[in-house]
């Protein structure tokens, strides 16, 4: 077996695909380098990401599986699932072996179907984050929010927030992956930082504008009052708003 290690980037993965074909490798397995484990009887090679190789694979795939296919591959990648490379590799091979037609809608192929399921999962998380982000207005005049999404969705939610909030500075920070996106009224940038003392519910209070707490309180009031007690259905509620998201939802803060 040939194990190809790559640097956890999408470009790195595409480079690995290129090299698998370039060197006509058999029984290929593409693995993130941090997840490397000792393997008997396997040849392990580290792939160095090269943009031109990645670009060629990208363009080839575009002709085979179109924009929809690439979109699905990218979303699969963002899922960070440990099996994702296996399925991506299987789909790439299936596409190349059937170059006469676009196989991306062939849901009878297990990996093609799997990719559409990854896409669905990541898309649902993207949609959730567009809904569950809760900004707080800080003294620097930045609307600030923290999230801990199941999948790495910051790259795909940036556009939504950029289109929507054009006249306010904002930042969304992924606590799990310790990076964020920041909009400075002109463009969105990736920011990496370690917060010594991030805006936590209590400790960060002094950094928020005076009215912030009051608006949070109004929102909590609204949330409480818009519930119809006679129809209370906690199971349904939790199904829609799973508990793991409550930590950052203003309306779910303990009063």
């Amino acid at each position: 077996m040939n194990i190809l290690l790559y640097d956890h980037t999408f470009e790195g993965f595409l480079t690995a695909v290129f090299e698998a074909y370039e060197f006509k490798l058999k029984q290929v397995k593409i693995v993130k380098e941090a997840l490397q484990t000792e393997q008997l009887f396997a040849k392990i090679t580290k792939v160095f990401t090269q943009a031109p190789k990645a670009e060629r694979v990208y363009q080839k795939l575009k002709t085979l599986i179109g924009d929809l296919g690439l979109h699905r591959m990218l979303y699969t990648f963002l899922s960070e699932d440990e099996d994702l490379e296996t399925h991506l590799w299987a789909v790439v091979q299936y596409a190349l072996n059937n170059s006469k037609r676009n196989i991306i809608q062939d849901f009878s192929h297990p990996s093609v179907l799997k990719l559409s399921q990854y896409e669905q999962m990541v898309h649902r998380e993207k949609h959730r984050m567009e809904a569950f982000v809760r900004f707080r207005l800080t003294l620097d005049d930045i609307y600030y929010a923290e999230i801990e999404p199941d999948f790495n969705v910051l790259p795909v939610i940036a556009k939504h927030f950029k289109d929507r909030y054009q006249d306010q500075k904002w930042m969304i920070f992924d606590q799990k992956r310790t990076y964020g996106i920041y909009y400075d009224l002109h463009k969105v940038e990736l920011v990496e930082m370690k917060f010594a003392n991030h805006l936590n519910k209590q400790e960060g209070l002094e950094m928020l504008v005076k009215d912030e707490k009051l608006y949070q309180h109004l929102w909590q009031t609204y949330f409480k009052k818009t519930t119809i007690q006679a129809r209370k259905n906690s199971r349904l509620h939790i199904q829609h708003v799973p508990k793991r998201y409550w930590k950052y939802l203003t309306e779910k803060f303990p009063v």
């Binding site: 289109d163 119809i228 007690q229 259905n233």
Partner: peptide
Amino acid sequence: RNNQNKGLGNSTGMGICHSYTEDGRCV
């Protein structure tokens, strides 16, 4: 509704439920 000249808000035609009440209805 497209946000054109640095206004507030943008509607793409897709709805978003920002939360759900305790009776499970979209907010």
